[in-house]
């Protein structure tokens, strides 16, 4: 056989395989995504949107539905009739209102969505910017039983990684009072309660700043064009549009304030310091392992040894030597001991 022709055929086959099987952009995964665009998905997405409106006390219209689900007005009105048929909504004076049944259904989808986000955050290495999109797909796939099993496995969590409450099996969801970061007055401390994960581009921008629910922030400066605040010893500027997607709860006086603490990664070999807190970004297994090793607030910790390539570093904790990677020690806040 002519080797040149064989070579070209070989390269051709390789290219075709890559086109089909490439993750996310390949034909296979596109086809898989297409497959999920069915009526059930539309029904469930519409219910979620309606619930969102209800939660925020806004009126939902046909337009907002067609916009939110990116479908035509015609399709939207068909969808609404369908929902009405199913007894999930009623129409009153031109308003679309969820029935009890519809609300429960919506809450179940939201529960699935948030549990799946929690699962991705705690038990996988999926990037935080992908959590929401993956959960958008998964929420239509899991059965009620699977969802309950998932919840049990995760220890029945209360909040998703963005800080949103996860509805219980019976659809209970508590209301928490929070403000936009832009409403926090200058000089006040607040704890990030929740970061809105939609729209995705805005979330990605906030995320790129390294903000997490549970983080403590203090507003330094406020104007119409920017809000300057500090968190964990770093300064950050956000446009008001972005800041309004960050929701905070004002800190009560008795909560410990972790603003100017350094990271464990900043200490040099031989130095001994006190742990003050573990960052909320240390999640799931990672966090539990740290706690198991006895790295809790108040623990004395001493940098003992650097690996020959500089990372990880071995620390002495409660008589044992434990190696931590820099991306772990970055998330442990410490206080230097006062010289006696």
């Amino acid at each position: 056989m002519e080797p040149l022709i064989t070579l070209i055929v070989g390269i051709g086959v390789l290219v075709v395989i890559i086109l089909i099987a490439a993750p996310e952009k390949g034909l296979w995964s596109r086809w898989a995504k297409q497959k999920t665009q069915r009526e059930k998905v539309l029904v469930e997405d519409a219910l979620k949107h309606l619930y969102d409106c209800e939660y925020n006390n806004i009126d939902c219209t046909l337009n907002s539905i067609s916009g939110n689900l990116s479908i035509s007005g015609d399709q939207a009105s068909k969808l609404i009739s369908k929902l009405e048929e199913l007894g999930l909504i009623v129409r009153k004076n031109g308003k679309i209102i969820l029935t009890n049944e519809g609300r429960l259904y919506a809450l179940r989808i939201i529960r699935t969505h948030r549990l799946w986000e929690k699962y991705l955050a705690d038990n996988t290495s999926v990037n935080e910017t992908d959590w929401h999109n993956l959960a958008e797909l998964k929420e239509h796939e899991l059965s009620n039983d699977e969802v309950n099993k998932l919840a049990a496995r995760l220890g029945n969590p209360l909040q998703d990684p963005h800080g949103d409450p996860i509805p219980s099996e019976s659809g209970e969801i508590p209301k928490v009072k929070y403000f936009d970061l832009s409403q926090l007055s200058v000089g006040k401390f607040g704890r990030i309660y929740h970061i809105e994960d939609e729209p995705g581009e805005v979330f990605a921008q906030i995320n790129a700043q390294g903000l997490y629910p549970g983080m403590q922030v203090r507003v330094l400066e406020k104007s119409n064009t920017r809000i300057k605040f500090e968190y964990e010893g770093e300064e950050c500027v956000l446009a008001p549009v972005l800041a309004s997607n960050v929701h905070v709860i004002p800190l009560e006086d008795n909560e410990e304030i972790t603003k100017d603490f350094e990271n464990l990664s900043s200490i040099s070999v031989g130095e001994e310091v006190v742990v003050v807190a573990l960052s909320k970004a240390l999640r799931g297994q990672q966090r539990r392992r740290m706690l198991d090793f006895g790295i809790v607030p108040g623990t004395l910790i001493k940098a003992q040894l650097k690996s020959l390539s500089g990372d990880p570093t071995a620390y002495e904790v409660r008589g044992t030597t434990i190696a931590l990677r820099k991306n772990q020690s970055d998330k442990i806040y410490i206080k230097r001991k006062e010289k006696v």
Binding site: Q285, R288, R289, L291, D292, F293
Partner: peptide
């Protein structure tokens, strides 16, 4: 095990 409280 190091603990009995974690989820492994």
């Amino acid at each position: 095990t190091y603990s009995l409280l974690s989820t492994s």
